[in-house]
């Protein structure tokens, strides 16, 4: 359990898929992330980074969602 929690979304490489386990983001971003489908159990794939390295383009629930590394760092995943 503990080591699963160690991996965060920002460590994903392009093309890799993972399952979200916990969203630790605080504040209004938390609500927004939930609304956009970033809930525990959702499958997520990193499509690519923006040309300047940040933000990231993820595929989740069949669409593309872009978030910054800063938030991705507070989202815990386990790879599939």
């Amino acid at each position: 359990m503990q080591d699963i929690q160690e991996i965060t979304l920002d460590t994903l490489k392009p093309g890799e898929k993972a399952e979200i386990t916990k969203v630790r983001v605080k504040g209004s971003a938390r609500r927004k992330l939930f609304d956009m489908g970033m809930v525990a159990g959702a499958e997520i794939e990193l499509v690519r980074n923006a040309p300047l390295g940040d933000p990231m383009d993820y595929r989740i629930k069949g669409y593309h969602l872009s978030i910054r590394k800063e938030e991705a760092r507070q989202i815990f995943i386990h790879k599939v």
Partner: peptide, 9 residues
């Protein structure tokens, strides 16, 4: 603010 945005097709 955080950047949480859909990239529409």
């Amino acid at each position: 603010a955080p950047f949480i945005m859909e990239l529409p097709p």
